[in-house]
Simulated assay, not measured.
Amino acid sequence: MEHSEVDPEILPEERDFESALRPRSLSEFGGQPRVRDQLGLVLDAARHRGSSPDHVLLSGPPGLGKTTLAMIIAVELGVALRISSGPAITHAGDLAAILSGLSEGDVLFIDEIHRLARPAEELLYLAMEDFRVDVVVGKGPGATAIPIELPPFTLVGATTRAGLLPGPLRDRFGFTAQLDFYEDADLARIVHTSAAKLGVTIHARAADEIASRSRGTPRIANRLLRRVRDFAQVKKHPVVDLDVACAALEMYEVDQLGLDRLDRGVLDALCRLFGGGPVGLSTLALSVGEETETVSEVAEPFLIREGLMMRTPRGRVATHAGWSHLGLRPPAGVAPALFGDAE
Rank of each mutant, 00 (worst) to 15 (best):
residue 50 G to D: 04
residue 49 R to G: 03
residue 41 L to Q: 11
residue 60 G to E: 12
residue 42 V to D: 05
residue 52 S to R: 05
residue 57 L to P: 08
residue 68 T to A: 12
residue 41 L to P: 01
residue 63 G to L: 05
residue 38 Q to N: 03
residue 33 P to I: 02
residue 35 V to K: 06
residue 60 G to D: 14
residue 49 R to K: 12
residue 61 P to S: 13
residue 67 T to A: 06
residue 41 L to A: 06
residue 56 V to S: 10
residue 47 R to V: 10
residue 59 S to G: 09
residue 55 H to W: 02
residue 62 P to D: 08
residue 42 V to Q: 05
residue 58 L to C: 09
residue 51 S to L: 07
residue 33 P to S: 05
residue 56 V to Y: 12
residue 51 S to G: 00
residue 63 G to Q: 05
residue 47 R to D: 03
residue 49 R to P: 03
residue 64 L to F: 07
residue 58 L to I: 08
residue 38 Q to S: 06
residue 56 V to H: 10
residue 38 Q to R: 09
residue 51 S to R: 13
residue 33 P to D: 00
residue 42 V to M: 01
residue 49 R to A: 10
residue 65 G to N: 13
residue 46 A to P: 05
residue 59 S to K: 02
residue 47 R to W: 04
residue 51 S to C: 07
residue 53 P to K: 00
residue 40 G to R: 02
residue 58 L to M: 09
residue 64 L to T: 15
residue 55 H to S: 00
residue 47 R to P: 00
residue 33 P to H: 01
residue 34 R to V: 14
residue 43 L to K: 05
residue 40 G to F: 00
residue 56 V to M: 10
residue 55 H to L: 01
residue 35 V to W: 06
residue 40 G to K: 02
residue 51 S to F: 03
residue 37 D to M: 11
residue 41 L to C: 01
residue 33 P to N: 02
residue 65 G to V: 14
residue 42 V to E: 08
residue 58 L to V: 08
residue 37 D to F: 12
residue 54 D to Y: 15
residue 63 G to S: 06
residue 50 G to T: 02
residue 34 R to D: 13
residue 59 S to I: 10
residue 64 L to V: 14
residue 54 D to I: 14
residue 68 T to H: 04
residue 35 V to A: 15
residue 54 D to H: 15
residue 52 S to G: 02
residue 60 G to W: 15
residue 31 G to V: 04
residue 52 S to M: 07
residue 59 S to R: 03
residue 56 V to E: 11
residue 42 V to I: 11
residue 67 T to W: 00
residue 44 D to R: 15
residue 54 D to N: 14
residue 54 D to A: 15
residue 31 G to M: 00
residue 32 Q to D: 05
residue 42 V to S: 04
residue 64 L to Q: 09
residue 47 R to S: 10
residue 36 R to P: 05
residue 31 G to R: 00
residue 34 R to C: 05
residue 45 A to L: 13
residue 60 G to L: 12
residue 65 G to M: 12
residue 51 S to I: 11
residue 58 L to W: 11
residue 53 P to V: 07
residue 53 P to Y: 06
residue 44 D to I: 03
residue 65 G to T: 14
residue 43 L to E: 08
residue 56 V to P: 09
residue 59 S to Y: 01
residue 32 Q to I: 02
residue 39 L to T: 06
residue 63 G to R: 03
residue 63 G to K: 06
residue 68 T to V: 11
residue 32 Q to G: 04
residue 36 R to M: 07
residue 53 P to S: 04
residue 32 Q to K: 05
residue 55 H to E: 01
residue 68 T to D: 06
residue 45 A to G: 03
residue 68 T to W: 08
residue 51 S to K: 12
residue 60 G to S: 15
residue 39 L to W: 07
residue 65 G to R: 14
residue 45 A to W: 14
residue 41 L to I: 10
residue 37 D to Y: 12
residue 66 K to D: 03
residue 48 H to Y: 15
